[in-house]
């Protein structure tokens, strides 16, 4: 952004405040990783010996679903939107899979139905946001009511039949290789690559930034925002569905409100990761670090033995503090 102007001071730049500010603004991932390492160091200090490969595996395993959900928020926030329906959609996907597991057609069918239902919800959301220009906050909020209600109806319909989290989901969601590397990376790494490359290398990714940064300019340069938005919300719902399957595998539970508590943290992870809720700025790499920071933070507060309420208070305060620090150095909201 200010590459030309800063050229003369480049040599001693790493010492000056302005350089730090520039680093924060242009490469937010560096200070974020620094923050993550500080948190890990604090945990190690508080409880020496806790940090190790196995611990890292546990943290990673817990971060994966949150990072995917935060990916939904990142993608939608880039266009100036938000997706509050991820909790309902994710819970629904896990729940539907669990209820269909004993069907004659089997687990792949159950997963396919769950993801198809998620995609359908995303399609409707996308049509609402893209074609009817309903505010994304309202559209996804309304959609979460619809999905939750329908999932509850489905629950009553299927209450007689046996249900359970399929073994394959348990293996993928909570299993590990050599007790260290979580199996869920099998799902997460492709998803991560798709989002990272999709945002950086494809026209679709560019369009997301363009629409979020300046919708009028994007329209005048020939972008059909409604098409982009429909595809975007379908992708977001599919990601939420995948995350829901992983959560139900991780917790070995399936309920219509299983993932609800992750909605606000997913927004927080994206915000901490440097994605602007106003659109046009951010990326998925920062979001992944944001999700890791939140998970490590939760672990730290648990290690400190703080009761749940205190944890909530600190959690909220830290989100405000990080977001404020971020806004200060980048000079924009």
């Amino acid at each position: 952004m200010s590459g030309v102007a800063s050229a003369p001071v480049e040599r001693s730049a790493w010492l000056t405040a302005a350089a730090w500010r520039r680093l924060f603004r242009d490469r937010p991932i560096v200070p974020l990783i620094g923050l993550l390492l500080v948190l890990v160091a604090i945990i190690q200090f508080v409880q020496p010996g806790i940090v190790g490969p196995a611990w890292a595996g546990v943290i990673l395993r817990a971060s994966v679903p949150l990072a995917i959900l935060a990916g939904c928020q990142t993608l939608t926030m880039l266009t100036g939107g938000i997706d509050l329906s991820v909790g309902a959609v994710a819970s629904m996907a896990g729940f539907v899979t669990a209820t269909l597991v004993h069907s004659p057609v089997g687990v792949p069918f159950a997963i396919a139905v769950a993801l198809a239902a998620a995609a359908l919800a995303g399609l409707i959301t996308g049509i609402g946001v893209g074609v009817f220009r309903v505010h994304p906050l309202i559209m996804t909020l309304g959609m979460s009511f619809v999905v939750l209600g329908l999932a509850n109806v489905w629950q009553l319909e299927t209450v007689q039949t046996g249900a359970g989290v399929p073994d394959v989901l348990r293996t993928v969601g909570s299993g590990t290789v050599f007790d260290i590397i979580p199996n869920s990376l099998l799902i997460f790494v492709p998803v991560m690559l798709l989002i990272l490359l999709g945002l950086r290398r494809t026209g679709f990714g560019r369009l997301l930034y363009a629409i979020g940064d300046n919708p009028i300019a994007a329209r005048l340069s020939g972008a059909r925002a409604w098409q982009v938005l429909i595809v975007l919300y379908v992708i977001s719902a599919l990601l939420a569905g995948i995350a829901g399957l992983l959560v139900s595998g991780l917790t070995n539970a399936a309920s219509v409100s299983l993932v609800d508590s992750s909605v606000l943290p997913s927004v927080a992870a994206a915000v901490i990761g440097g994605t602007s809720i106003l659109g046009g700025r951010g990326g998925f790499a920062g979001t992944i670090v944001g999700a890791l920071i939140l998970t490590v933070l939760t672990a730290l507060l648990t290690v400190l033995g703080l009761p749940e309420p205190t944890r909530q208070v600190l959690f909220g305060s830290i989100i405000v503090a990080v977001a404020a620090a971020y806004t200060r150095v980048t000079g924009e909201a």
């Binding site: 989100i319 405000v320 977001a323 404020a324 806004t327």
Partner: peptide
């Protein structure tokens, strides 16, 4: 802080 209302 000038952080967006929704985040705060």
């Amino acid at each position: 802080t000038r952080v967006p209302d929704i985040v705060v």
